[in-house]
């Protein structure tokens, strides 16, 4: 048994029990779970997220070190790769966009296989890419969809998103594809981490914890929607209470709702202290967000300082005789 994922699993189970007990204990604890903790979590999330970014920003980027993944801009007749080796801001923006939205680097995972003797073909090894992309896209959609609880009247783009998301009109209430995909993807990522020895070997407890937590969030969410229904109107009332800064508790909403909210709060509060900060970090990654125009435009290093060098004079001083003998020109005869 791997202690690393056990730690995380136990932590999430403990959190679940806490929330469950709290939801059952009474209105005062529901108030803590439904109002105090969410507010605190958001506060911690925003403040420490910004602090982390500012922390990064306080370190300069002394050198221009993009990873070039294609042909540089060079002689005019050689086709350069404006995207993978951007020579302009625009290229960088496009590169970053594709990286952030479509995880382009993961997509690069081509594999080569020789089928028949001499016919090589390339296949894409895409499971990680598919899993990661599905996870993030679904997560984003689910979060955006939740705005229906936080806006009144519900904004058009949100209802539009809902309609698209429930495109396949299956059953009642209609199934949101994003929720199911999120659950499937987080399960996949979790199983992958546990089952592939290579990945298990490199995984830390802090890699399992958010996965278990998000698994818990997705699971409780699906449960609420499809199986163990909660009072949706009550939920919205509480959400609007938070938004309008007039928070209150609606009774009889169901314990699972508090579990869900507690998990989300924990995730938010945990976020800025963890690897989840890759959300912000990717924007600051110098190997991706820089233009490869190194030789055309000088990059300034704010802490550049003079160093001790071995000057030509010192050099000539040491080797003058030999240089003269060999017929090499010298400064001082």
């Amino acid at each position: 048994m791997n202690v690393r994922y056990m730690y995380s699993l136990i932590a999430v189970i403990v959190l679940f029990l806490l929330a469950y007990a709290g939801a059952e204990a009474g209105v005062w604890s529901q108030y803590i779970l439904g109002v105090v903790i969410p507010y605190l979590a958001i506060l911690v999330f925003v403040v420490f997220f910004i602090r982390r970014i500012v922390g990064w920003a306080k370190s300069p980027v002394p050198f221009r070190i993009p990873t070039t993944c294609g042909q540089q801009k060079t002689l005019p007749w050689i086709k350069s790769s404006w995207l993978d080796n951007p020579s302009s801001r625009l290229g960088v923006i496009a590169r970053m966009f594709l990286e952030i939205v479509f995880f382009r680097s993961l997509f690069r995972n081509t594999k080569f296989a020789v089928k028949d003797q001499n016919k090589p073909f390339y296949a894409l090894e895409l499971w990680l890419w598919v899993g990661a992309l599905a996870f993030h896209m679904a997560f984003f959609t689910v979060v955006a969809r939740h705005l229906r609880f936080f806006t009144q009247p519900v904004l058009f783009p949100i209802s539009l998103l809902e309609n698209i998301d429930s495109f396949f009109q299956v059953g009642l209430p209609g199934v949101f594809i994003s929720g199911v995909v999120l659950f499937a993807a987080v399960t996949f990522l979790l199983i992958r981490r546990v089952l592939i020895p290579q990945v298990r070997y490199i995984s830390l407890a802090s890699d399992y914890f958010p996965l278990f937590l998000i698994f818990g969030i997705a699971f409780s969410g699906l449960l609420m929607r499809y199986f163990s229904k909660v009072d949706v109107v009550g939920v919205k009332e509480m959400a609007m209470g938070l938004v309008t800064l007039h928070p209150h508790i609606v009774e009889g909403v169901g314990a699972i709702f508090y579990v869900h909210v507690f998990f989300v709060s924990i995730l938010l509060a945990y976020f800025p202290f963890s690897k989840l900060m890759h959300l912000g970090g990717i924007f600051l990654s110098p190997t991706r967000n820089m233009v490869n125009n190194n030789r055309a435009v000088r990059h300034i290093n704010p802490w550049n300082y003079p160093v001790e060098v071995h000057t030509y004079e010192e050099y000539e001083e040491e080797f003058r005789d030999k240089m003269i003998e060999a017929g090499l020109p010298v400064e001082k005869e």
């Binding site: 990064w56 370190s59 980027v61 830390l204 890759h278």
Partner: peptide, 19 residues
């Protein structure tokens, strides 16, 4: 860490995806 943003960011954001 104070001199190189690359270093600081790379210390923080790896998710150990295994790619």
């Amino acid at each position: 860490l104070d001199k190189f943003r690359s270093f600081k960011v790379f210390m923080d954001i790896c998710v150990r995806c295994g790619a």
